[in-house]
Each structure stands twice: as C-alpha cells, then as structure tokens.
C-alpha cells in the first residue's frame, strides 16, 4: 500500500495535503483497495461547513457505501468535479486525479492532530 511521505492521515483512511489556500482531502490507497470498484461519489456543496469527524461526503463501490469524514473542521472551498463522471479515478489515482475536495480549516490545532505517514503505516499494520 502506498503511503506518500508528504501527506497527513486520519484513522478513518483519509489523506490530507496542506496547500496555500486550504487542505486537499482524498482517501488512501488502502481505503480504495478495500472498497473495490468505486462507482459513485456524493460530494458536498462548496460553502458547506463541517466539524472534525463529521461525514461530509459518501463514496460508493459496487458493494458498499462509505462515509468520508472531515479530517479537520472546515469550510468546503472546492470539490473534484471530475469524479461526477469518472468516480473510478479514485481507484486509479487516489493521491492525484482522484482527490475529493479542498477545505479551509477552522483551526491549526486540529491539523497538528493528524497522523504522520509513519503513524498511519503503523495503523495499517495493525489492521492488516
């Protein structure tokens, strides 16, 4: 399972990347592989606000429905429109073209609580 070194992670298998205007959120290689063929992404409206840990999107594979939880509290500033027609991008390139959304975080403190790549890899070992 790929766990890029420049990202931060959650226990619920989201990844985050800090950029100048907000943080990008996606699901990890482990998560997409566990879900199997992803056939639908139900993304939030731009402007919607979520607290840390709240469900902000839903991804469906042929078999299962999975909630995507806010890694940190924030306001949605962009969603990946390409997923509307091509949800399979999440399987094909979960850390790139298959990103889900970008949000503007409400607090710096919550960002510091995210898992490092090493911590996330340890979590995967325990799940495996």
């Amino acid at each position: 399972m790929k766990v890029p070194a420049d990202l931060k992670y959650t226990k619920s298998h989201e990844w985050t990347k800090v950029t100048d205007d907000g943080i990008i959120v996606g699901i990890t290689d482990y998560a997409q592989s566990e879900m199997g063929d992803i056939v639908f992404a139900d993304l939030p409206q731009v402007g919607a606000e979520y607290k840390k840990g709240e469900s902000m999107a839903v991804i469906e594979s042929v078999k299962a429905v999975s909630d995507i939880y806010a890694p940190v509290g924030g306001t949605i500033i962009e969603v990946n429109e390409a997923l509307v027609d091509s949800p399979e991008l999440i399987n094909e390139d979960c850390y790139g073209e298959g990103w889900l959304l970008k949000l503007s975080p409400h607090s710096q403190a919550e960002l510091d609580e995210l898992l490092s790549p090493e911590e996330y890899e340890e979590l995967l070992e325990n799940e495996g």
Binding site: G36, D37, V39, S61, V62, K63
Partner: peptide, 20 residues
C-alpha cells in the same frame, strides 16, 4: 481473493474486481 462473511461462511467476494 478478498473474503466476506456470508451465511456463516468465509467466502471470496472478489478476485480481480466485481465489475471485471
């Protein structure tokens, strides 16, 4: 294969992918 519980059995739910 990936496995799933079904009717008290551990059964293969997919190999190469459900759609494939």
């Amino acid at each position: 294969a990936r496995f799933t519980e079904f009717g008290g059995w551990e059964m293969p739910v997919q190999y190469s992918g459900i759609i494939d």
